[in-house]
Simulated scan of single mutants.
Amino acid sequence: MKKRAWISGHSRGIGSALYQLLESQGWIVGGGSRSTGVDITDLSSVEASIDEFARTHGGLDAVVHCAAMLGPRAELSDVSTEEMRTVLDVNVLGTFHVIKAAGPRFTGAAQLLLLSSSVGRRGRAGWGPYSASKHALEGLADTIAEEMPQVRVLSLNPGGTATDMRAEAYPDEDPKTLPSAEEIAKVIFDLMNDASHKSGSKLDCRDFL
């Protein structure tokens, strides 16, 4: 039986590269993104997308949560409440919505992979909203790993990758000096098929390149 995966943020960057890779490997793949009308900040929107996919294909074996926004690259003293709220709505509530919607639809030895960041493990000046949101993602990953022992939960830090988000954060950086989205997607795919990493693990994709 073919494995079934749903990917958030599947229309660009790492999410798009992973979507294409899984399809090429015979997986049944679906996803949600702004371009397909899925609003990650709206639980009903996420639930509708995941429900339709799981119902159509008889279940759900994996969810990879890639959707996120960078937000302002500024010191916290220069970040507005509205800017902070927007980032937290997308990156924290969005993660919560994906977890909440996917949980009841998982079948068998399922897995949930959440894309984190190096600044989600240690804060850095000028990254306040994004860093805070990814720290929250790490907390959600730890929590759901304990609450859903039947699902393998992995927090994955892609590291600097040649994506549009990276270019937004570092507009003067040469993307050729970074791993491509396709290279990172291959690492994620390999980790999905490597059962040696227990649920709750926090992994850096660069360690596996």
Score class of each variant (00 low, 15 high):
residue 177 T to S: 14
residue 17 A to Q: 07
residue 165 M to A: 05
residue 124 R to M: 14
residue 22 L to N: 07
residue 190 D to A: 01
residue 175 P to F: 11
residue 124 R to Y: 12
residue 2 K to N: 15
residue 26 G to W: 04
residue 19 Y to W: 13
residue 134 K to V: 10
residue 171 P to T: 11
residue 99 I to L: 10
residue 166 R to I: 08
residue 152 R to T: 07
residue 10 H to I: 11
residue 180 S to R: 11
residue 141 A to V: 06
residue 32 G to K: 11
residue 42 D to N: 15
residue 78 D to Y: 09
residue 135 H to G: 06
residue 19 Y to I: 08
residue 134 K to L: 10
residue 76 L to H: 01
residue 152 R to W: 02
residue 98 V to M: 09
residue 89 D to I: 00
residue 36 T to P: 09
residue 73 R to Y: 06
residue 58 G to S: 13
residue 88 L to V: 11
residue 196 S to D: 05
residue 95 T to R: 02
residue 16 S to Y: 13
residue 115 L to G: 11
residue 47 E to C: 09
residue 157 N to W: 02
residue 22 L to A: 08
residue 16 S to Q: 15
residue 37 G to C: 02
residue 97 H to C: 09
residue 34 R to E: 12
residue 38 V to A: 07
residue 179 P to G: 09
residue 73 R to N: 11
residue 96 F to P: 01
residue 145 A to G: 04
residue 113 L to Q: 08
residue 123 G to W: 06
residue 134 K to R: 11
residue 99 I to S: 02
residue 182 E to K: 03
residue 74 A to C: 09
residue 112 L to E: 09
residue 77 S to I: 10
residue 175 P to V: 15
residue 180 S to M: 05
residue 203 L to K: 01
residue 80 S to K: 00
residue 152 R to H: 05
residue 51 D to E: 03
residue 130 Y to F: 14
residue 97 H to Q: 11
residue 63 V to Y: 06
residue 62 A to R: 08
residue 133 S to Y: 04
residue 46 V to E: 02
residue 20 Q to G: 13
residue 84 M to W: 02
residue 166 R to C: 06
residue 71 G to E: 01
residue 156 L to Y: 10
residue 176 K to Q: 14
residue 25 Q to F: 03
residue 136 A to S: 08
residue 113 L to T: 12
residue 89 D to C: 00
residue 150 Q to L: 12
residue 191 L to R: 00
residue 91 N to L: 00
residue 29 V to W: 10
residue 135 H to R: 07
residue 115 L to R: 09
residue 147 E to D: 14
residue 125 A to F: 10
residue 107 T to P: 07
residue 154 L to C: 03
residue 24 S to P: 08
residue 14 I to W: 04
residue 133 S to L: 08
residue 89 D to V: 00
residue 180 S to T: 15
residue 138 E to K: 11
residue 182 E to R: 04
residue 91 N to E: 03
residue 77 S to E: 13
residue 148 M to K: 14
residue 53 F to W: 02
residue 43 L to R: 04
residue 159 G to V: 00
residue 107 T to Q: 14
residue 12 R to Y: 12
residue 55 R to K: 15
residue 93 L to E: 10
residue 152 R to Q: 03
residue 104 P to F: 05
residue 6 W to N: 05
residue 139 G to P: 03
residue 155 S to Q: 04
residue 202 K to A: 12
